[in-house]
């Protein structure tokens, strides 16, 4: 084995963070998107901590999860200290549920970087690129931050430049730079 002690610590930390819970069923057919792509497409891009998740059934058959996040940084969209939005899917207290294929669940307590679409016709948002639009912000024992694909157990999804970082993820600062390039592209397109 060629693992270094620090690496082992990092791996353990990532594993424990993953244990905070990921209960998503992912299966949709989706375009592959990179961070810049996500930033260019999203209506809202922000960092925050998931404070609460509440599953609702506003109408028969419509099961939605209302998330409340403390917003730490807004990258796209107006700042909002307490961000509340709904995603389709979830499991009701009676065990009934709706799994939207490919849609990530946001574990309470997790620090996340989200790329959300505008509200759809029913008032819910969608992570752009489904699971690709939901990344965990992981702080390693050495204090370094990494952006990790939101699903626990994620590993690299390819090494193509457009692939979303997963598994060990990518350096947070590098990720923000890529996101910034996507935001800049939005400006260029908006100015056309």
């Amino acid at each position: 084995m060629r693992h270094l002690p620090l690496a082992a610590l990092a791996a353990t930390a990532l594993g424990l963070l993953a244990l905070l819970g990921t209960t998503d069923v992912r299966a949709g057919t989706v375009q592959r998107l990179g961070l810049a792509d996500l930033a260019e497409r999203a209506d809202l891009v922000f960092e925050g901590r998931v404070l609460a998740a509440r599953v609702l059934e506003p109408a028969p058959g419509r099961i939605e999860t209302e998330y409340t996040l403390r917003e730490d940084r807004a990258l796209v969209g107006a700042a909002c200290p307490l961000r509340v939005f709904r995603l389709p899917g979830g499991v009701l207290p009676d065990g009934r549920g709706l799994a939207i294929a490919g849609l990530p669940a946001l574990p309470v307590g997790a620090d996340v970087l989200l790329f959300l679409s505008r509200e759809g016709s029913r008032g819910t948002r969608m992570p752009v690129g489904l699971a690709q639009g939901s990344l965990r912000i992981v702080t390693l024992p050495d204090g370094a931050k990494r952006l990790v694909g939101s699903a626990a157990g994620l590993d690299f999804v390819g090494d193509a430049p457009t692939a979303v970082p997963a598994g060990p993820g990518i350096d947070y600062v590098s990720g923000l730079a890529e996101i910034a390039s996507g935001i800049a592209a939005r400006g260029v397109e908006a100015g056309r």
Binding site: G28, Q31, D43, L98, A99, G102, E119, S121, T124
Partner: peptide
Amino acid sequence: DSSGYFPNGTGIVALTPVWFNT
């Protein structure tokens, strides 16, 4: 986007919502 699942720009080509019980 009558389903509400496909706001513009999501990159989602198709999906399959599945309802289930406990």
